[in-house]
Amino acid sequence: MSEPIIKIENVNKWFGDFQVLKDINLDVSAKQKIVVCGPSGSGKSTLIRCINRLEEHQKGTIIVDGTELSENTKNIEQVRAEVGMVFQQFNLFPHLSILDNCTLAPIWVKKMPKKEAQELAMKQLEQVQIADQANKFPGQLSGGQQQRSAIARALCMQPKIMLFDEPTSALDPEMIKEVLDAMVNLAKGGMTMIVVTHEMGFAKEVADEVIFMDEGMIVEKAETKEFFANPKSDRTKLFLSQIL
């Protein structure tokens, strides 16, 4: 196995007195797809938010593509430009059109000419099949369309890694599929992905490995087939029985 693109070692994090992450160790190699699941409050969102330092960890090291995350802001911005993130609540910028949402970061962070950025954005929007909505504003789109735009926005930075924080949880059932389809396409293209989700169908189809977290710890980590066929820990079994 090649050198991991994300290396997480003994990471701990507290919110006040409450420990949300306990000694997390995780290696992710390039092009790997990992699905993180677990009950709510188990720390799975916090974990992936730590990877592009939207949350600070207090102990341990996180190395993303050779850069260690520390207080150094230059490092953080560099990592963030390489790591795309998709949020549960979309978080599109409501004052910008979809196209401007997508070109904002390429122009200001990558210093890309506007025209080039727009071409790139249109290509990504076509990928997620909403190129026809490019000039509308986020408030004018449905939830599924918004989430796909958010994916396109993240892709416009041409990231090496994509993080998904429960991307379908805020969506109506009929829209979940269109977002998942976009994600499956992305996976087939060879992107490194870490996905926090409860969509086990997606996990079975796409994931190389599945991680089950509970109470701030990684309880179980196994290859996808193994994970669903014979989970080892009782907690995993219980969780799977409830969710499937």
Binding site: F87, N91, V109, A154
Partner: peptide, 14 residues
């Protein structure tokens, strides 16, 4: 919302 700042940070804006 906090999400706006996070989303902006997550694409690498300073």
């Amino acid at each position: 919302g906090k999400g706006q700042k996070e989303a902006a940070a997550s694409v690498g804006l300073t």
